[in-house]
Nucleic acid binder design. Sequence first.
RNA 1: CGGGGAGUGGCGCAGCCUGGUUAGCGCGCCUGCCUUGGGAGCAGGAGGUCGUCGGUUCAAAUCCGAUCUCCCCGACCA
Length: 482
Amino acid sequence: MNEERLVTQITPKSEDFSRWYVDLIRRAELADYAPMKGMMVIRPYGYAIWENIQRLLDRRIKASGHVNAYFPVFIPESFLRKEMEHLKGFAPEVAWVTHGGEDELEERLAVRPTSEAIIGHMYSRWIQSWRDLPVLINQWANVVRWEKVTRPFLRTTEFLWQEGHTAHETFEEAQEETLRVLEMYREFVETELAIPVIYGRKTDREKFAGAEATYAIEALMSDGKALQMGTSHNLGQHFARVFDIKFEDRNQKLQYVWQTSWGVSTRMIGALVMSHGDDSGLVFPPQVAPIQVIIVPISIGNWKESVLPVARKLKDSLQQAGYRVHLDDRAEYTPGWKFSEWEMRGVPLRLEIGPRDVKNNQVIAVRRDNKEKIALEMSGLEVRIGEMLTAIQKALFDRALAFQKENTREVESYEEFKRTIEEKRGFIRARWCGREECEAKVKEETMATIRVIPLNQDNLPSGRCVCCGQEATTLAYFARAY
RNA sequence: CGGGGAGUGGCGCAGCCUGGUUAGCGCGCCUGCCUUGGGAGCAGGAGGUCGUCGGUUCAAAUCCGAUCUCCCCGACCA
């Protein structure tokens, strides 16, 4: 039976990546379209991934000294207006509340596109002394951005995210925080999502509206396009000045705080789909998979008496051991159907148990990532399962890393740059003169943008800008992006 | 926001050009039997105001207008 026939309702990935992506999301019940433009419902199977992401990331956020809080979803228009760059950046995509019940509001309220403004306002009331610093607050929230083009998880009108907002005594401290968070994101995404990233600073053109500097992690999706997976901003004193966030420093001088903000969103779920998925469907890394182990009893003869009780015991013991495990005991589907179904849903490990296995005191384990099938002794199974899940997690990362390396290229000329972007996509590592004209020209002519400027430029080989041929000042990663 | 494509039982589609019985097909769903080690089979059954609103007409899924939504390709963004 070939792969295409197994998943008839999903467009093959190789045939049409975009359709494959949306087909899969709906068929696997990660999300469904809501009846309003650009909005989606995150269904239980998709939301479970978000809960895992929250749990694993929240742990890191707290371990690095941050605490959670919650700020209002509405922001007065005048607040947004205080930082003009910020307003200009977000104005086109802000949703406005104009009425409360029947009454028109005196001042429009923005549905937050991000929370710097409201949080800045509150910080100005909470911070008086250097003893109040740093303030290290994070919130898990929803935000709304009225995007023109939307795609499930990648860009939706409303999305879920976490946004960290910190205030510090010095620029250096804020910069340290910005980079510490960037590193936290990198480690989180690579460890838990098994997605290798590149990271660095954004160009001025690409930086956050109102930031001094923006840093980002970027990943390469399996169609060769880049996806920004998280950002960390050094806000300098821009917001502090307009929201009047002042403190008396150690020298009894009044000065503005130095701030950062940073976030990752439900876009990560889209990244998981596009990084690891294949023609058979989703492939989830065990660390965030809603179901890590699916048990399929082989329904033959008197399986309900002979196999099912053993399968139930197996499920209980694995659950006890801390795994997210599900037993598919439905009688109305054949084992073959279930195999395909759970592969499509991306469950990392399948355990088959039939009369033969019961007799031999074993189960058949099948890995989702490489379809490898092995028999496992019942005794000591909990440990073996753990080892296999670890191996799958690593294999997914290694595979994605190999893909990223294969698709990160250096080019000799602008002609080669253009041809590579057009034919192969992927990242291009190239020298750049640092001028915005070249950045704009490249974008205009190739649709590729500078994704990041690597932090470490020490080993910058001398050379010329890939675009204009002038002396290069930095190394940059270019790609077409989502 | 520009260019292109599309909305018909849950999903995928046909019918529309050339208006006219009761709107079809495949998958899925329900009931029963029989099956089940890689998406089984047979029989019976349920489910539709044809995206929405308006217009033309004796008559609209079909023609006209508006509107909403989705997909693809570009300009803007987590």
